[in-house]
Design a protein around this nucleic acid. Structure first.
Lengths: 405, 405
DNA sequence: ATCATTAAATTAAGAAAGTTACGGAAATGA
DNA sequence: TCATTTCCGTAACTTTCTTAATTTAATGAT
């Protein structure tokens, strides 16, 4: 009744969840062996997670499909609970907001259940958004939820769980989005930077790909870094803003207020602007650009723009020490020659290329998978962060917060 | 006799050492409070570190200078042992190698005790180096050593404790430097990337500066990142190679084999080359450049070169999420207008500048302090790395390594 | 059919490293 | 001289891990 430490081994618990997410299906014994922990420990953690319905046991019938030449007692196979939507994903877009229920085992491509639009000239956008969100909530329901993951473009201040800066959706900077969402569902809410979700989604889909830089091309250009399977983040709220790396000689004004940002060249709008200029000011569209490249190959302006992007990417690779770039978004919709040119330019600027290969590959956006990964990491395991500098941090505080006896 | 876990709380031990290094002098109670651990725990760790002479207690006489208005029993003040050289630092330079004994409490500017040169055209440089090193060892001695820290330029593969690539000192790539040094002193040897040592040294001297990018200008241009007080490093051996970020439009060949690297413009040689070109091919020297800038202000070519460097720096800041750059080396020896221009250019390209200030400050090189920090972290606390993914990693292996009973 | 074999899961016992609680030690000030 | 305050160490206890032993559930051979 005196000593109230943090809950039993969150590290091990989190590690086990991550490993199970990676393996898909595994028995207690497999988990224990692959994590290097003892069977009793893995067993206890599994029991606890089963009790709160985060995991589920699979009937042996389901897996009987695989021919099993096992010798001893077969392990009871486990997986993340897929039977229930325990998480809700909300994606805030430029105009459209989409909402979906997600099971912990979900790792599919993005499938949204409900969506709504917000008028551009809404007088009170925060209020309007909340109203629409309530309507969506009524449609979707959501019982037994662990929490809501809110994917947002722009800078997210993790510590404050607020949006710091959003050049395209300014009203979100003032509004407390997390509070609004919490008022609707009354469960924990996490704001997640869009690109971070994408990067974690890619990681979930490619578990062996543990270190990479993801760059997403769309309205803007944003990035996120995964290091040893975990997002690169520090105590400062900004990261991954690769789109705002300046490009020497570029004079375009950026939405962020600066001049010469890389994204003014290779964002959707930037590309179309360049294309239009190249076509003597004619109005142009995305499909026209696709066709143009398909017919005439890579125009000079695009090659230059890609090289500018590659410089920023290669710089990031060199400083952080990476050898893999994952590209998502609009750029992957253009003919392959575009990605090829970008990849070559990245290769040319990358230190790693001198010792091996530097990969630069396109990939689909897997926002929901990334949100689920974050949800599992931050919502399933009850207790909060554990800082290496004070491993047993906040025990004292916990005593104060929830006194026992 | 069955359960042989990793030694008692390396995390806490390391944390306590780091904190003491930061505080300089502290009592057990102060350490416990500032780390958030209980007094008995801090006391036990301190006792153990005193026993192996890593810490020492200070006679109250020494500290009596400070007027103490303390109320209760005064704490027994502790500090890192300064009475003995427990670490040896070896700095491998382009031609010169320098060796120094360091006490754990040392945090002064670099003071080397012995140095020797290696001829440029040595037929067997590794052998010659070893011979010279033995002679230096005879001079310096070194008893009761915890280990040797070897600062090297170029890419270090931490996992292998080997040099991967060194454009200027190629022979080190083939030779196993760690083995050579170990054959001389017969204690653990750690290879440390030069810039990482500098960054940790800056951190040791400025404990409140927990997140920054350090860029060192010299023969080449290298960098290192400190995140939350710890060097940014992942499982891949390369990082901090900011000097090899390509610069759009730059056609100079770099020692690394690529074309257009930023360091071809702002390294010592790069600056002099540009200066010489600007002076119509006249041969020039560093002091002449200093005087020229002092007299005529910033020449256009230098402004352009600085802006190119700033782009690479700003890109790194934006991606990693930093707001502070520390500049060391040759660039800080030029008139202040140089740093001012660089700082302004970094500011212009940095995302953080939109929410607050971005610092870009010169600083002295503090190699030894950084090496001591690494030594304390990796040599004093016996057991090796602890991975979050398998918190109890290698316990089983330890049983195999040192069986008890 | 029964039993040995094998591997998974559980139970039991114990070690490590933390915690709180308490008491003695060493200073100051009334 | 004594009350007060703070530091430090000891004792008892808690959590969470471990190893070791046992039980359970399957396969294959006699």
């Amino acid at each position: 009744m005196i000593y109230v430490p943090s809950r039993m081994g969150q590290f091990n618990r989190r590690a086990l969840l991550r490993r199970l997410q990676r393996l898909g299906v595994a028995s207690r014994a497999e988990l224990a062996k692959s994590l290097g922990m003892s069977q009793p420990t893995a067993g206890k953690i599994v029991d606890e997670l089963l009790a709160i319905r985060v995991l589920e046991e699979i009937e042996p019938l389901e897996t009987a499909g695989a021919e099993s030449v096992a010798r001893g007692r077969p392990g009871r196979q486990l997986r993340l609970n897929q039977s229930q939507s325990r998480l809700l994903a909300v994606q805030l877009g430029l105009l459209e907001t989409t909402v979906a229920g997600l099971s912990l085992g979900a790792a599919d491509a993005d499938v949204w259940q409900v969506s709504f639009l917000l008028g551009r000239n809404e007088p009170n956008p925060a209020k309007a958004w909340e109203k629409q969100l309530r309507r969506a909530a009524a449609k979707i329901g959501g019982s037994n939820l662990l929490g809501v993951l809110l994917s947002v473009p722009g800078l997210v201040d993790d510590a404050q769980n607020r949006i710091l800066f959003s050049p395209n959706i300014h009203w979100t900077e003032k509004a407390d989005l997390a509070a609004i969402v919490r008022s609707v569902w009354e469960v924990p809410v996490l704001l997640v930077q869009e690109e971070r979700a994408l990067a974690l989604g890619h990681h979930a889909a490619n578990p062996d790909c543990d270190n990479f830089l993801l760059v997403d091309f769309g309205e803007g250009v944003g990035g996120a870094v995964i290091l040893d399977g975990k997002p690169l983040a520090n105590s400062l709220p900004i990261s991954g803003e690769i789109g705002h790396t300046p490009v020497l000689g570029n004079q375009r004004r950026c939405g962020c207020g600066a001049t010469g940002c890389m994204e003014t060249l290779v964002s959707l709008r930037g590309l179309l602007e360049s294309f239009s200029q190249d076509q003597r000011g004619q109005k142009t569209s995305w499909t026209e650009l696709q066709e143009y490249i398909f017919k005439h190959g890579l125009p000079l302006w695009l090659a230059k723009s890609l090289e500018a992007a590659a410089v920023a990417i290669a710089g990031a690779l060199n400083v952080i020490g990476l050898r893999r770039v994952v590209i998502t978004g609009t750029l992957t919709e253009l003919p392959p020659v575009v990605m090829a040119h970008l990849a070559q330019a990245v290769q040319n600027g990358s230190m790693w290329a001198k010792f091996g290969t530097v990969e630069c590959v396109p990939a689909p956006r897997r926002r929901t998978a990334g949100l689920v990964a974050i949800g599992i990491d931050r919502l399933v395991v009850p207790d909060a962060k554990e800082n290496e500098f004070s491993p047993k941090i906040s025990r004292r505080q916990q005593v104060a917060l929830k006194p026992k006896s």
